[in-house]
């Protein structure tokens, strides 16, 4: 009971801090800190997506950068065509975030459906490897496709628009990311509490018993995988707008690794784990990156220590082990 209360308290502190720090930065005139907070929020959304597959469903996808990058390219390509006034597949380009998000989620979901349907036939190490292989295939596609910049990437000259806000302003962009983050966190909590989440966790813990009580492991896992890909794709579209740039690097295998790292640093399967993890990763990069150019060395040591000695991540360290994760 106490532990549960500690976790909720920690969640509230994290959510509050992620809002309060950029608000302070806004008043202090430090737009870069607002941008950093926005980056944290968007990375956290991507990791919430992965957390559905990995944390709830136990599916170690080493290829979620595929959906992240796909979402990014949807935003980039739509903005590119809107900017040049040319059609794409017979449709006009758009510079509105909402339809771009919808397209990014639909396409990411469809791709996750295909990858999931094929990959879920395997398990364990083979699942890790086949998701990696599909992501690598995706990575080489924009890399060698010259129409949208190939290796050079695709700049977004003007951020896409959101009704009622001026996305060019760091604070407005932050509000969008923060709002979407709260929505996806809510969705994650709902999923976990619903029968769907219970079934998913039952399958992860004991697939045979779950099958015996009439739960189809394949179908449930596939749905979770698709949802997971959709949310990560949405985050990709937002990240493209934040950095005003899309490149194949968004689909690189290291990006998949980074998303897993975020979840582990924060705490697997924990609602606010991705928020804590993304904050640690970005904070580490900014703080230690300012002190030493070899900050990745120290990040590696911290990560190693977390894996070997603190498996619950930050949330686990403070709020104790989760009941069923």
């Amino acid at each position: 009971m106490d532990r549960l209360r500690t976790e909720w308290l920690l969640n509230a502190v994290l959510a509050g801090a992620l809002f309060a720090v950029p608000l302070w930065a806004l008043m202090a005139g430090e737009p870069f800190i607002i941008t950093l907070a926005t980056r944290i929020a968007i990375l956290a959304i991507a990791a919430v997506g992965l957390n559905i597959a990995l944390g709830l469903g136990g599916m170690v996808s080493f290829g979620h950068a595929l959906y992240f990058g796909l979402g990014g390219y949807v935003a980039g390509i739509a903005a590119h065509h809107a900017f040049h006034g040319t059609p794409v597949l017979g449709l006009p380009g758009t510079n509105q975030m909402l339809p771009i998000w919808a397209i990014a989620m639909v396409l990411s979901g469809a791709l996750a459906g295909i990858v999931g349907a094929l990959s879920l036939r395997t398990s364990g190490i083979f699942f890790i490897m086949i998701t990696l292989a599909f992501a690598q295939m995706g990575f080489f596609f924009p890399l060698s496709w010259p129409a949208y910049g190939g290796e050079d990437g695709l700049p977004i000259f003007m951020r896409n628009q959101f009704p009622g806000l001026n996305t060019a302003r760091p604070w407005d962009m932050f509000l969008i990311a923060y709002g979407v983050l709260l929505l996806t966190l809510g969705l994650f909590a709902m999923l976990r509490a619903a029968r769907f989440g219970a079934a998913l966790m039952a399958i992860r813990q004991n697939p045979d018993r779950a099958a015996a009580i009439g739960i189809s492991p394949f179908g449930i896992k596939l749905v979770a995988f698709i949802l997971s890909g959709m949310i990560t794709g949405l985050a990709g579209a937002m990240m493209a707008d934040l950095t005003r740039f899309v490149s194949p690097a968004m689909m690189a295998w290291t990006m998949s690794g980074e998303l897993i790292v975020i979840i582990i640093l924060g705490g697997v399967g924990r609602m606010f784990g991705p928020v804590a993890g993304a904050a640690i990763l970005v904070g580490f990069e900014v703080f230690f990156g300012g002190l030493t150019e070899h900050w990745q060395f120290w990040l590696g040591l911290v990560l190693l220590a977390v894996v070997l000695f603190a498996r619950g991540g930050l949330v686990g360290l403070i709020a104790g082990r989760a009941r069923n994760v």
Binding site: L54, G257, I264, L301, L308, R311
Partner: peptide, 19 residues
């Protein structure tokens, strides 16, 4: 499990490359 192995050895890449 494989997840821990992936992560710990991913951490080793960071350490060894920067080293």
């Amino acid at each position: 499990d494989h997840l821990d192995q992936v992560l710990a050895t991913f951490a080793l890449i960071l350490i060894l490359s920067e080293g």
